[in-house]
Amino acid sequence: MEITVRDAVTMLHGMGFGALLLLAFSGAVAGLYSTSIAGHPWTDRERRLACAYLVAMAALAWITVLAGAYLVYPWYRAVAPPGTTDLSGYPQRLLMSNTSTSGWHDIGMEWKEHIAWFAPITLTAVAYIFIRYGAHLSQFRGVRNAVLALAVTAFVATAVAGAFGAMLNKFAPVRGGSTITIMKGEAHD
């Protein structure tokens, strides 16, 4: 069972950071609704935990986009030397070489690479406002509604980026670099 370094980094970016971020949204929306709209009484400890949760989500969003843009994307957009016929090491070129797959780059990657950045920006604002206002947030109706809208915007941006990322990696996986052997497999007849 082997994996290349590029496979591993891409998987960490998408399945690790990105998927974990997507999972975290349900907790964030439930928490924001509970404390700022439903008005459930929270203890100081619960509020501190919620602050840490939102800060962790913002940090996760930044790590995801930075890893995507500065580690995975350069491998994705690598230019194939002239005359290259095997484009498997050049995912962008591989997708663009066929009209049945070029849309995954032209729409999928082109949208994903930009909209993904909406998530860390909006989640940073969400975390800041939650910490800044604390228990008073429920008393500022306009701010609390906007905070929920920001969280939903971040979720949509993450979902778009994640869905296209999964499909892009299905049609043109980012592969290469050193091989990591996870375990030795058994020989089958």
Partner: peptide
């Protein structure tokens, strides 16, 4: 401060 964070984002 909340409005500033929202509009800036």
């Amino acid at each position: 401060p909340g409005a500033a964070a929202i509009l800036a984002a």
